[in-house]
């Protein structure tokens, strides 16, 4: 079983639409994992139906029992996150500021503070219209630990792929270079970098690739809207060559891409479209690289 992770550094480059296209092409050879848990959109194209769902708890939150609090303020002094302001004659915890370190609970002289488990989101195992299973999640608003939820989604997808004897796990990764992306990348066999020929697309590609390099994972790149800016596209081509990243495909700038999304379809389902053909070829290349 091989794990393919699609990431982009920059948002809005077409990562999710391209991942969904690969998922459509790979059909029931895979399990899909939507690890962009902050802004998960893949379900809009894959239309999963949940078979099971489960709450996800991660981390803890301080709660003060006001009936036992003597108002000494030591908790507020110890808290590095200013999460325990003194208001209206009492100390209370601001949940969004609390990091869950538990320092306050340990030093409260009267044991008035307890740390309670936090329900941060929910994850689902679903079936999709392509026959593939899909693991996806919804993170509560402002929740911490999306890195941990990403790890959970990935592990569940891997387990499902093993149980079902599937060849691939296809992961829609998160944007950025922080903990959710690190979680998305760990254990991957191949990374697909999606970018666009804009100054920010190139900048973010270079930054996220520094991260991929640390994991020593082989990578390929799909350039979306490749004909938007020839000069920047050429710079991306040079970058790929220098870094020995497989140049998988150049996709033309085409609003059909957005029109397919409006219909809840992937671009490969729209007939007579050059993007669809290029992505079919991309999927064959990726399979060949992975030796299947």
């Amino acid at each position: 079983m091989k794990e393919i992770v699609v990431i982009s550094g920059k948002g809005g480059t077409g990562k999710t639409s391209i991942t969904a296209s690969l998922a459509y092409l790979g059909a029931d050879s895979m399990v899909i994992a939507d690890c962009d848990v902050d802004a998960a959109d893949m379900h809009l194209l894959m239309r999963p139906e949940a078979v099971s769902s489960e709450g996800f708890t991660s981390g803890v939150l301080a709660v003060i029992d006001q009936s036992r609090c003597i108002g000494c303020g030591r908790c507020a002094q110890a808290c590095r996150y200013d999460a325990i302001p003194y208001r209206d004659g009492q100390y209370t915890v601001t949940p969004l500021d609390c990091e869950g370190c538990g320092y306050c609970a340990r030093i409260c002289p009267v044991g008035a503070i307890s740390m309670v488990d936090q329900l941060v989101g929910e994850w689902y195992l679903s079936t999709t219209r392509t026959g593939a299973s899909m693991v996806h999640a919804r993170l509560g608003i402002g929740a911490e630990n999306s890195g941990k939820l990403v790890a959970k989604v990935k592990n569940e997808a891997k387990q499902a792929a093993q149980e079902q004897g599937k060849q691939y796990v296809l992961v829609d990764g998160s944007p950025g270079i922080g903990c959710p992306v690190v979680s998305s990348l760990s254990g991957a066999d191949f990374v697909v970098l999606v970018t666009e020929p804009t100054v920010s697309g190139l900048h973010d590609l270079q930054r996220v690739y520094q991260l991929v390099k640390r994991f020593q994972i082989p990578a390929g790149c799909i350039i979306n809207k490749a004909d938007l800016n020839g000069e920047v596209a050429a710079q991306i081509h040079d970058f790929l060559k220098n870094e020995q990243i497989v140049h998988i495909a150049d996709l033309p700038y085409d609003e059909a891409f957005t029109r397919a999304m409006l219909e809840g379809k992937t671009i490969v389902e729209v007939s007579d479209n050059p993007i669809g053909e290029a992505l079919s070829d991309s999927w064959l290349q990726i399979q060949t690289i992975l030796g299947e």
């Binding site: 948002g11 802004a39 969004l96 608003i141 402002g142 911490e144 950025g176 959710p180």
Partner: peptide, 14 residues
């Protein structure tokens, strides 16, 4: 601000 709805965004807009 950063994208998303988790901790970096909350820190940025609070």
């Amino acid at each position: 601000c950063p994208p998303g709805t988790s901790c970096p965004v909350i820190e940025s807009i609070k």
